[in-house]
Design a protein around this nucleic acid. Structure first.
Lengths: 264, 264
DNA sequence: TGTATTGGTTCATTATTCAAACCATTGGTT
DNA sequence: AACCAATGGTTTGAATAATGAACCAATACA
């Protein structure tokens, strides 16, 4: 593992639950030498990627990140394409909606939107989603290449009792998603949460996924139908905003989903 | 220079004008070995901080940056505090308004807003502002500590004929800003652009600056008075949003500015 | 007072980077 | 087709960094 990779790994420990981390915590979390950790943190700080809370001396995300994110968003807009579709999806379904972006090593949560209707709603903590254990991941795998599948198969930790354990289980789930155009995961990542996801495309192909995370006990057949319909609409809108086209096979699968409902 | 610092430096070469950079360009821009540059880029890519454009193989900012920026904004909102004040400042003055955040090595542009009134307006290209050559930098220096001034004096490249060259010139400009509460820079960074800036504060002290960049030929005494008034209002609002307090000396300086106008 | 924990620093050992060469591919010219 | 000048990417021993165990200073707590 390169020095740079080690330093970058430190950034992975930040989350909405843990937005500030001190030297000793980093030392323990990363299981790396304290001196080394300190040097890495200092280097990241002087680059502006981190900054120290003057009061606690704990490290947090620095302002340089804002500049980089702004630049990416100006030249390659992604969040902008969600601005209307994601709140609409959350409101129409009454559940939490989120969209994630596919990169070399998995899915990164781009944005999430919570429905105002229910007091009990799914709150997202993780911003990095595993391919094999989330509806979003399955949706991406269903329309990604074999290389992506290989990376998913490389590491398959079990999060709950129902997380796919074997390559066969995973491939079966992916095949179902490919056939129906929507991935459904029943408590494979977090207990009590059922995930529904549709793939998103940009001009280069599969680019991410849009998903609804619903409280499992609330999912009735009626709600599920509503979620699937809204999810297809949202995915169509977002992919169009991102300059992507829906593959014919997926368009057909979606039409088949909607067909029985809209037929006279 | 540490390996991490070198890798981080690569990120500095991105700008709105140059959002994608290939291996050979990096090799030339950073004046560093091609093999090493490639390893650094690969490491940054596998961390998600960069990604390769599949068509051109050039590198661009990766999706991990969006996740980090989102996290910072949720836990330490800064952009949110500008949402109302910055557009108002641009509209009221008819010129381009922008706000920047102070970090260890200078100012980073957070957001900018262009006035709709004029077809000729200042368009910002640089997201990294030098302390010694911009109104924002002078404003920050006027209310920052000596350490910040030391860093400003360490590197003072000349951008135009009127950029401060000597430490004395800079310290004089800073003293004027400290006395009046507003920094004014006449074409010290870009020719044809006059900058006006006020310091911004958060709970820890000086945190950045809010500025108006005006087309120099359009600046009349009337416009200048308008800009100063609006700038003070904007700075007060934003600092309040950021949880900061205006130092008494600055409040007095601003009152003196406004005083002569509002006196009967 | 003693102890545990914090952030931060030092110095031999070990791993990485450097520079300059080389490969393979692509796009344009003659 | 042959050629040229780019591109991204890889390989080689000599130079230069990174590493980790122990150490230091300050704070908090009992």
């Amino acid at each position: 593992m390169s020095t740079i990779a080690k330093a970058m790994e430190l950034l992975e420990f930040f989350s909405l639950d843990r937005p500030e981390i001190g030297l000793s915590d980093f030392h323990r979390l990363a299981r790396r030498d304290k001196a080394t950790t300190f040097r890495h943190l200092s280097a990241l700080e002087s680059a502006g990627l981190l900054e120290q809370n003057p009061a606690t001396r704990a490290y947090r995300i620095g302002p340089a990140v804002l500049r980089l994110a702004h630049m990416r968003e100006v030249t390659l807009p992604r969040r902008a394409g969600l601005r209307v579709a994601l709140p609409r999806l959350a409101e129409a379904t009454g559940e939490t909606a989120h969209a994630s972006l596919l990169d070399a090593s998995g899915l990164t949560t781009l944005a999430h939107h919570e429905a105002p209707q229910h007091s009990a709603r799914v709150v997202l903590h993780e911003s990095r989603l595993p391919l094999h254990a989330t509806a979003s991941g399955i949706a991406a795998l269903a329309f990604g290449d074999e290389d992506l599948m290989k990376r998913a198969l490389a590491a398959m930790p079990a999060y709950t009792d129902t997380t796919a354990r074997s390559p066969e289980d995973l491939q079966a789930a992916v095949a179902r998603a490919r056939a129906s155009g929507i991935a459904i995961s029943n408590q494979t990542f977090e207990t009590g949460v059922t995930g529904f996801a549709a793939p998103l495309f940009d001009s280069t192909g599969i680019a991410g996924a849009v998903a609804v995370a619903a409280v499992s006990s609330r999912v009735t057949p009626e709600l599920q139908t509503l979620i699937l319909t809204e999810l297809m609409n949202a995915a169509r809108t977002i992919s169009a905003n991102w300059g992507g086209t829906i593959p014919p096979a997926l368009a057909a699968a979606w039409a088949a989903q909607a067909g029985p409902e809209t037929a006279p």
